[in-house]
Amino acid sequence: MNLMTKVAISAILGVSVLSTSAFADAEKGKKLYQKNLKEVCGVTGGVFAAKFKQADWDKAYKAGTLNKKMTEACPAGKAYFEGDKFKKTEEHMYNFVHDFAKDSGNIPSC
């Protein structure tokens, strides 16, 4: 390993210390929906997220009422939305519904 490689790797390690924001990811939220809610709600994740616009999801998330908004979108999932599991993964779920909201303009791949 030459000097330049060492410098580059040291720089990466240095930058990693700056890691500030949590790695919330829509893909993880999608998996959580698949695992815990798809059967209960009876619709795909895309249909669930598209029940509301981005502004609606944003407003609920900022107000700390995302669980209530999601219960509106899927009343059958109320027990899950009010449970501890949801609280722990709320940020991933928010990223997911935000990215696939009614007016997100998101273009899926296939």
Partner: peptide
Amino acid sequence: NIPIVGKNLTAQL
């Protein structure tokens, strides 16, 4: 795999 600024700026060794 290291997230530096969420998913927008990442690094890897």
